[in-house]
Amino acid sequence: MGEILKLENVSYTYGAGTPFEKTAVKDINLTFNSGDFVAIIGHTGSGKSTLVQHFNALLPPTSGTVYINGEDINQSAATRRAARFACGLVFQYPEYQLFEETVFLDIAYGPKNMGLSEIEVKRRVLAAAEAVGIDALTLEKSPFDLSGGQKRRVAIAGIIAMEPEILVLDEPMAGLDPKGRDEILDMIKNYHDKHKTTIILVTHSMEDAARMANRIVVMCDSSVLLDGTPGEIFARHDLLTKSGLDVPQITSVLIELKNRGYDVDTSVYTIEGAKEQLMKLRGKLC
């Protein structure tokens, strides 16, 4: 697995030179490998949303360099544009960006901007619609007539249709009910399994991060606080709670059991993992 996206000493300051000056990301060094599924977590204001806007050159770093496939993406207008297509970014509440008359046309907006042929655009729209579970009938509807969950899928399809090498999703589950969350998460997981696209998921839910990613980056106060596998991250629950993040309830249960003197592994973060452990422990104790 090769390096696909690399950030070198990236810092970003809003409103430099005004009384509202604020450093949103500070000296970030990160490398993402091709095919990875990474979750970036942090509380609101930790800088995670600002950080991801550097991945596709929407924000040029105040200092530092961003590379995609070894190329500095901020060299010229052309490289910046190329980065938009190489690294697709789905914003928070993406359904608010829908504007076209039909779902088909809306999904086609990105591919059309890439200057692709009509046939290719059509192929991509259909493929993207299928990936997010939008049927042919819906493609002809107005996006404004859809339900909230469907709108969000359409918006995600709009980015997927650009067939980016890296897909970044900023809080794609925000505001959805448990079923809606699961559907979106499953959809992303399936897409990753099928296409091996590098996925970067921004979230403040530790549960979702743990379920989906093979690597978690924790942001706090504009910097990277922790970086590792879910197990490694949950082992540092003290740091996580201190930075305003919630560990999954099941992890809290295991931590409390450990405090009560039981020999449990507190880096477990799924019900299945906890179940297995508790059954084994009971076998030992009884």
Partner: peptide, 27 residues
């Protein structure tokens, strides 16, 4: 936010003649 989101989909607000630019505002 909307501008950033459309830029992420390759929208171009800076080039082209006045009609192209006006059209680019629709999204």
């Amino acid at each position: 936010k909307i501008m950033a989101a459309q830029k992420a989909r390759g929208a171009d607000f800076e080039s082209g003649n006045i009609f192209a630019r006006a059209k680019a505002l629709i999204p």
